[in-house]
């Protein structure tokens, strides 16, 4: 699995790493300055990838408000459950044309800011 992940390269590697439970490994490679949203950002498998996505959001969403909302939504269930709840409730957002669950989009924006 590890080997396949390495071969896959590019952007999909992170997704595979997550499934393989290797997200900590990718996380260990990078050091980020502390931010008030670390509790949320640690939900992300790859902050750099998320930040690249988040940078496509035009305008300047209020990070504090967004974080507050996210904390309520992500709660104890984690990002996966929050994303599925968004999808079911049709709480979707569009980033660079990509149709995303709102919580994924918001987290990407936070990653881009920090």
């Amino acid at each position: 699995m590890k080997r396949r992940t390495l071969i896959a390269g590019a952007g999909f590697a992170a997704g595979a790493a997550a499934v393989a439970g290797l997200w900590r490994y990718t996380g260990l490679l990078r050091h980020y300055a502390p931010s008030p949203y670390d509790d949320l950002l640690e939900q992300l498998n790859d902050r750099d990838q998320a930040a690249l996505l988040g940078r496509q959001v035009v305008g300047a969403p209020d990070a504090r408000m967004m974080a507050q909302e996210l904390r309520t939504r992500i709660g104890k269930g984690g990002l996966g459950a929050a994303a599925m709840a968004d999808i079911t409730a049709d709480r979707m957002t569009e980033v660079d044309g990509w149709i995303l669950p709102q919580s994924v989009g918001q987290l990407a924006v936070l990653a881009a800011k920090h």
């Binding site: 992940t5 992170a14 595979a16 790859d46």
Partner: peptide, 16 residues
């Protein structure tokens, strides 16, 4: 690629 990686990981799906 970033959109796919971020979203698939959030959903716990292998997108390799």
């Amino acid at each position: 690629k970033a959109a796919v990686a971020t979203t698939a990981a959030a959903l716990g799906v292998d997108a390799s």
